[in-house]
Computed example of a mutant assay.
Amino acid sequence: MAEEEKKPKPIYLFPDLLEEILLRLPLQSILNFKIVAKQWRSILESRRFAERRVEIQKNRKILAAVDHEPESRFEGDEEIEVFYLHCDCDDVATRPSLTCDGLVCIPVPGWVNVLNLSTGESIGFPSGPDPVTNYYDYQLASGYWWNTFPAFWAMGFGKDIVNGSYKVVRMFFDPNHYCEILDVNIGEWRKLLNPPPYKVDARRKSACVNGSIYWLELHDKLCVLALDLHTEVFRVIPSPPICSESDQVVNLENRLAIAKTNTWSDWKLEIRCLDAQEKTWSMTYTISLTSIATPRPWRVWFRPMAVSKQGNLFFYDSKKRLFKYYPETSSLRCLSLDICVISPFVENLVSLRPSGSYVPKTSGSRPSGFPNIILDQEKVKDKQLIVPTAQTTILQQL
């Protein structure tokens, strides 16, 4: 008899060593390895692994939307990468959204949708009947700095850094102040016992930094209103000494920042950051914008996104332009003249499967008026950003 072929001996890897190996693999491989063994799946779906995966990412990334295929587009450079989402129409590409750790929250009438573009998961939560307000009827008919969410909800989206859950926040102020929170892991709205102490402008985007959501208010009270997502307690933070209608509140490298355009003398962008004690604002960047040809510059707002390892700042404006600022030489470069930037982007392996009794929407119950969002297949192939499936539709459950 021929000698039987010897079977290779199985190799046992300690869980800690296995985790270190898996952390350094491309995202597509990580997602495919979930079916190898229960132990591997347990590691890959753990909160610890998802958080460590976010921490070790090196290259800065930008998430942008396109509603058409331009002749040429910015694909990134040696300091930053760009990932595109293809939308069916310009309305979706420019629809106000909120982001945190690579997750995207898109409120639409009747629904709040949360997407994880790294895993391809999406989930929608009914928002119930929208309230009605006439408060904004008596203000300016249009504002070039506004990002209006459905029904004039003041929206927020962020992560509770204590228990790791992601939460959607919405506030309404007419006639009474109240706030509701939805934990994505549970899937149910609940009303806070303590309402927000001040009204904030619902037409401004909020920012999430280190477990709190921040709203800038310039009308009823000049301040920054903050909500701790774990204790669910509001607090009031003094705003910078000088503010204007076009100011934008952002998360810049895990610090709360306000971007202000100054048009009184030389046109410039001023970016101030808040210290860890939330007491002092410091001028971080002063960028001359005189080299940018823009008619009526007072109608333009700017939002900083990321700082590269080389210390250069990336920011974009309301004219769909992307810029790179070099602090060492005080020089400014326009990277793209036609890009709809959504936010900075990081890979995130967190699951959107609710642990409570909430049943997610199925793919056949997508809200009307919300077209598909399609992934850039070349980026999927080259960057291995999104899990490959038979369908490339991100909103699979919408």
Score class of each variant (00 low, 15 high):
residue 207 A to G: 01
residue 219 H to K: 13
residue 180 E to A: 09
residue 162 V to T: 14
residue 164 G to Q: 05
residue 157 F to P: 07
residue 213 I to Q: 09
residue 154 A to D: 02
residue 208 C to Q: 13
residue 175 P to S: 11
residue 164 G to R: 08
residue 192 L to C: 13
residue 159 K to M: 11
residue 163 N to E: 14
residue 153 W to Q: 01
residue 222 L to W: 11
residue 181 I to F: 07
residue 154 A to F: 11
residue 208 C to K: 04
residue 218 L to G: 01
residue 160 D to W: 00
residue 183 D to G: 06
residue 210 N to L: 14
residue 184 V to I: 15
residue 214 Y to C: 10
residue 204 R to M: 12
residue 185 N to H: 06
residue 217 E to K: 02
residue 188 E to G: 10
residue 171 M to P: 07
residue 161 I to K: 03
residue 177 H to Q: 10
residue 169 V to H: 08
residue 210 N to D: 15
residue 198 Y to L: 14
residue 163 N to K: 12
residue 170 R to N: 01
residue 215 W to G: 00
residue 162 V to K: 11
residue 211 G to I: 13
residue 166 Y to L: 09
residue 179 C to V: 05
residue 210 N to V: 10
residue 158 G to E: 09
residue 215 W to V: 11
residue 213 I to C: 03
residue 159 K to Y: 03
residue 177 H to A: 12
residue 198 Y to F: 14
residue 221 K to L: 13
residue 171 M to K: 04
residue 156 G to D: 04
residue 177 H to K: 12
residue 153 W to H: 11
residue 212 S to H: 03
residue 171 M to D: 00
residue 155 M to D: 03
residue 155 M to Y: 09
residue 210 N to F: 01
residue 155 M to W: 02
residue 201 D to A: 09
residue 202 A to G: 04
residue 162 V to F: 07
residue 160 D to C: 01
residue 180 E to W: 01
residue 178 Y to T: 07
residue 216 L to K: 08
residue 218 L to R: 09
residue 191 K to D: 09
residue 194 N to G: 05
residue 186 I to C: 11
residue 194 N to P: 04
residue 197 P to N: 09
residue 171 M to I: 06
residue 173 F to W: 00
residue 176 N to V: 14
residue 192 L to K: 12
residue 195 P to H: 01
residue 201 D to L: 08
residue 198 Y to C: 10
residue 196 P to G: 05
residue 160 D to G: 00
residue 218 L to P: 01
residue 158 G to L: 04
residue 173 F to D: 08
residue 192 L to G: 07
residue 160 D to R: 01
residue 200 V to H: 06
residue 170 R to P: 05
residue 175 P to R: 12
residue 172 F to R: 02
residue 217 E to S: 15
residue 218 L to V: 14
residue 183 D to N: 14
residue 197 P to D: 00
residue 206 S to K: 04
residue 212 S to Y: 00
residue 165 S to D: 15
residue 183 D to Y: 02
residue 178 Y to V: 06
residue 206 S to E: 13
residue 162 V to Y: 10
residue 164 G to H: 06
residue 153 W to Y: 15
residue 197 P to C: 05
residue 180 E to N: 11
residue 157 F to L: 06
residue 207 A to N: 06
residue 175 P to L: 13
residue 216 L to G: 08
residue 161 I to P: 04
residue 222 L to Q: 13
residue 168 V to D: 10
residue 191 K to Q: 14
residue 159 K to N: 08
residue 160 D to E: 00
residue 170 R to G: 03
residue 209 V to R: 03
residue 206 S to C: 15
residue 164 G to A: 09
residue 207 A to L: 01
residue 196 P to Y: 02
residue 189 W to Y: 12
residue 193 L to P: 05
residue 169 V to A: 07
residue 204 R to Y: 14
residue 182 L to Q: 01
residue 170 R to C: 05
residue 153 W to F: 15
residue 173 F to C: 04
